[in-house]
Design a protein around this nucleic acid. Structure first.
Lengths: 212, 212
DNA sequence: CTAGAACTTGAGGGCACCCTCAGGTTAGCG
DNA sequence: CGCTAACCTGAGGGTGCCCTCAAGTTCTAG
């Protein structure tokens, strides 16, 4: 897989130009930016883009796989922190920061792209770590005991919209939203919840089936 | 304005068919449903649709103005409730219920359509009432004192996404999300917030500038 | 019943994006 | 240097939605 028959040098170069262009445009305008624009920004024809990346998901994979990996690193760091609650908060804040900085990342935080296999694989790894962050904060009695990993999807969905809406007007407004949400996640704030949590597969489907 | 030169009878009938079709389709598929489809469902040509409603916003106005008014009625009811906190919760729950039921309403909860003047006017009225709901719950010491009306936009934005994502998989999941959020809004849960609230105009702009 | 204003119709031009493929270009091996 | 496979190109066909307008139809006042 690492050595998948080397590209000719010009092709390799074009590939890199495309990934760079995509990275920039995804960050600026989100994951749905027209492919033609990516090609133009890379200084390459649309045909070449399709030669290198048969579909948008392949391009997303090339751009984001590492970033989702970086998120996993954040999770590791959170787990290494002394205070479990602070680790939990640290992680959420950092992820939301990425959501606020990079429009493409924000899109990916709220919806899955099943065809982007590398990205999805990295996401799964991140999820395993997050599960541990949650469990650890709960064992310490800081995070409410009835919270599941799937509930965090609510946090990211909410942040996704808030970040999008306020990006231009008040780029840090999301911190306030997150803080309000966090106050609801503390064990000390917990009141009984009216609905059972999403099952993991349900949460998966929910992220996949999100249009717009 | 009430008597704006009566339409010919057939035109009036077509208008009603169009509004009914739009109401149904907005509810099913959201506010961005193709106009051609609305015309088809109404059994009328696309040209007729444009005769009656020069732009989508006019149609939105015709469909939603009353529903936003109904939301104001919810607010009045909330204000009439004995317990201010319960009034607050009642209001949020009902609005979120509407968001969950009607995809078009959900869209409107998260973004303004400045050209839809009647709808916007009704929204402003609802806002005045909501401000009172918030103030009353704060005075009773139940709602955190640092919360502003604009902060509720975060709630609605978040719910908008959650409702959209979970509608098919778990239609009541939003209740859990809302409950978590509510636990963060209680006075007893309050920790200092890291950011100042949005100013009212900022919140307005934020809802207007939301693409997707 | 008739005239003419009001209304309806749907084909069609515009636009933005998708993706393909025939024909021209280039890298790099021998 | 020459040859071939790999690569690039961009015009163009497909789709879906927007909105307009010239030509026909229908209502209604007189």
């Amino acid at each position: 897989m690492v050595t998948a028959r080397p590209l000719r040098r010009d092709a390799q170069r074009n590939r890199e130009l495309l990934v760079a262009a995509a990275r920039a445009l995804f960050a600026e305008r989100g994951i749905d930016v027209p492919l033609e624009e990516i090609a133009r920004r890379a200084g390459v024809s649309i045909g070449t883009l399709y030669n290198r990346f048969p579909h948008r998901a392949a391009l997303i994979d090339a751009v984001f796989a590492d970033r989702v990996t970086a998120t996993a690193a954040l999770a590791e760091h959170a787990l290494a922190m002394d205070d479990p609650w602070e680790g939990f908060v640290f992680f959420l804040e950092r992820v939301c920061e990425l959501q606020a900085t990079d429009r493409g990342y924000n899109d990916l935080a709220a919806r899955r792209i099943p065809e982007a296999t590398a990205t999805e694989e990295a996401r799964r790894h991140g999820e395993r770590l997050m599960r541990r962050i949650v469990a650890r904060a709960q064992e310490a009695g800081a995070l409410r005991a009835d919270l599941t990993l799937e509930d965090l999807a609510f946090v990211f969905w909410g942040q996704a919209r808030t970040v999008e809406a306020t990006r231009e007007i008040a780029p840090d407004a999301w911190r306030r939203h997150l803080a309000l949400m966090l106050d609801g996640l503390r064990a000390s704030a917990a009141h009984p919840l009216p609905e059972p949590p999403l099952r993991p597969e349900e949460a998966m489907q929910a992220m996949g089936g999100c249009r717009d």
